[in-house]
Design a binder for these strands. Structure first.
Lengths: 252, 252
DNA sequence: AAATGTGAACTACTTCACAGCC
DNA sequence: GGCTGTGAAGTAGTTCACATTT
């Protein structure tokens, strides 16, 4: 049920901000949960809390999609689920291949959130002949030799790379040559791709390093707080740097 | 939630922008590769190319750390590796626990980039008694019952959650209560944590959805280009496309 | 009365372009 | 001449605050 007009074209046209796009899946997840509990409507305040963002941001985000709410009431959950799904392109099914079926590849193949949301694991590919033919998550692993054929036969445009770093660029090149134009890269390496190909990367060790940075900072502040009263903490052996406040203290 | 106000801005420590912090691991990786090839110095241009960023950005990033380069020459690789490592807090060793030893948890436990860079998997924890005692990546899996003791005995401040979504918040609460203040969350759910605790999330399905959005946009543009005439081939309702004709309709 | 949608103000990040040093 | 380091300009993203609508 969706007919009628209401709002003028609103020449917003050119592009939803990238930051907004990155949050839409978050909203969608929260909305799906509400939908499962048969909640009919939700306010920006409530939904924002569920998604872990601030409500002004959420309203602004939605405003890029259109005017889908009702003042004084809120948003219709089902309707919004549909609109966001459509915006994200999840009303169609995306066949995906996973290349590199080690622990990580297997984890991805088994990942349920996959199939549930517009994605279908069309094939698993690995370079190890010993794996060829074996089933992972009920899907037979195929050999890298057949990569191009697999991509083409299945009309795959999204590829997931879960190979070791050393193989990633080569796999990437082959995927792109075969027609893949979006890549999710789990290998800890920078991928070079031609224009028109999107790459997103997920790197565990980078995430941990960012956490370590903040963790270190916290440890430093604690130490500062304790030692603040009289003397400033000496700067250890650190050298230049604009006015360092480097914590020269070990956690104990 | 949101109790003890007045913590630190959390976004700036020594005035290093969060976006810069997020790139430091990238630079570090590129520098490490250069170091292994015994390259003594590198220019901002070269290093930027290796890290996949633009060189002005890289120089600006480094300027937040201090003046570590030499005009007319470039940066000393070893020195920069050390400075960035120190800045990120990687000159110390961070014990990490992984909770939830399914496919993903196992993949993380086996992930080499871990140990190599300042992190040590101190323990693996899972709620399944059948797993208890079994070794994964050479590390025995321990039972969730002992979570608090494990955290405390090992002085763990960084935790990785790789459980199903349903268990994540509970695990998170216990980790935090036991003293963990940085969490890397792989479960597809929003975690609520008190002030002072950092959470970073990695969500496969969100990444895929973002890719799908761009993929759809690409497909739309292609279609527009080849079939400009009136009839569109898209699914039922007309949608996207630059210069929208957004079919705004009201909820039932 | 309640809650959206949005200009305007603000903040964060990026890129330019060039002075300054080697 | 080459390359860094950085103010200044430009761009993207966030938050405020309130007019508007139901």
């Amino acid at each position: 049920m969706a007919t009628g007009r209401t709002h003028r074209p609103a020449t917003r046209s050119r592009g939803i901000p990238e930051a907004t796009v990155a949050r839409l899946p978050l909203y969608l997840r929260a909305l799906t949960a509400l939908s499962e509990r048969s909640v009919p409507t939700v306010s920006s305040e409530e939904l924002a809390a569920a998604a872990g963002v601030n409500s002004a941001k959420l309203r602004k985000d939605f405003s890029y999609l259109g005017s889908y709410g009702t003042r004084g009431v809120g948003y219709d959950v089902e309707y919004l689920v549909y609109q966001i799904s459509r915006e994200l392109g999840l009303t169609q099914d995306w066949p995906v291949v996973i290349v590199g079926i080690g622990n990580l590849g297997a984890a991805l193949a088994n990942y349920g959130g996959f199939a549930s949301r517009g994605f279908r694991v069309a094939a698993l590919i690995d370079a190890d002949p010993a794996l060829t033919g074996k089933a992972v998550a009920g899907i037979p692993v195929q050999h890298t030799d057949d990569l191009e054929k697999i991509i083409k036969d299945n009309g795959v445009s999204i590829g997931v790379i879960a190979t070791p770093a050393g193989a990633a660029q080569q796999v990437c090149d082959r995927l792109v040559a075969a027609g893949v134009s979006s890549i999710l890269n789990f290998a800890p390496t920078v991928l070079n791709v031609p224009d028109g190909v999107d790459v997103r990367k997920v790197d565990l060790s980078i995430e941990l390093q960012i956490l370590a940075f903040h963790e270190q900072r916290k440890a430093g502040e604690e130490a500062m707080a304790e030692a603040l009263p009289a003397v400033a903490v000496v700067k250890d052996s650190s050298d230049q740097g604009p006015d360092g406040d480097v914590p020269a203290v070990m956690p104990a």
